[in-house]
């Protein structure tokens, strides 16, 4: 158990070189892979909250996420053989007409760190691509959409409308991006809005609870 605590601490501290060895030691100590993964998810919850409150900045959040990712690599073969412990699938993308990937990438990192599997469709994603991907992955739990520009806010609205009109259900739509507000998210019929990457991970978990 002590190694699990150490794993958690080192993920929070962003020690990517140390975490894989500690994860292995925790496994050797008899800790289960899902428990170790859960500890790392909890560490990233702390990191996300610190980011949202302004206590830490994007680089510190990224190094923690990278540390967790290194730890997950050690766990992956074991988790694969023991069945998934994922929170579910999130499909992510920046809407058509918008090439900005920064915010979308940060949200992807934090949502992965919150225990979701993520399909990142990239930037400038047409509505049809979102719909096709949802059809290919009907198990999807969250569709996360990003728009950075005031000029691509209409594209975000059209994407939400397009997905709704497709008749596909069983997932929640989460939106965000610099000009996006809770009011705009409500207006276009999104299920959730997050102002930053840390909050996006929290909101994604809330939406599927």
């Amino acid at each position: 158990m002590s190694k699990i605590i150490e794993v958690k601490e080192k993920v929070e501290a962003g020690k990517a070189k140390l975490v894989p060895g500690l994860v292995q030691e925790a496994l050797n100590e008899g800790c289960s892979a899902p428990d170790i993964l859960q500890a790392m998810v909890e560490a990233m919850d702390v990191v996300g909250n610190k980011f949202s409150s302004g206590e830490i900045f994007v680089p510190e959040m990224l190094v923690s996420a990278r540390a967790m990712s290194k730890g997950v690599e050690v766990l992956k073969p074991i988790l694969a053989s023991s069945g998934s412990v994922s929170n579910g699938l999130c499909i992510m993308g920046t809407v058509a007409g918008d090439l900005h990937d920064i915010g979308k990438n940060l949200v992807t990192i934090m949502i992965e760190s919150a225990g979701f599997d993520v399909i990142d469709l990239g930037v400038d994603v047409p509505i049809t691509k979102f719909i096709e991907t949802i059809k290919e992955h009907p198990e999807v739990k969250v569709l996360a959409l990003s728009a950075l520009l005031t000029t691509t806010m209409p594209s975000l609205r059209e994407t939400v409308n397009g997905v709704r009109e497709s008749g596909l259900t069983g997932f929640k739509i989460l939106v965000g991006g610099a000009p996006i507000t809770q009011a705009f998210a409500d207006e276009i019929g999104a299920d959730g809005y997050a102002p930053d990457a840390g909050s996006a991970a929290v909101k994604a978990k809330e939406l599927i609870a």
Binding site: G54, I56, G103
Partner: peptide, 12 residues
């Protein structure tokens, strides 16, 4: 900076 703060800490 982003709309909510600097990308890196001011100290960085």
């Amino acid at each position: 900076a982003t709309a909510r703060g600097t990308f890196m800490s001011p100290q960085t």
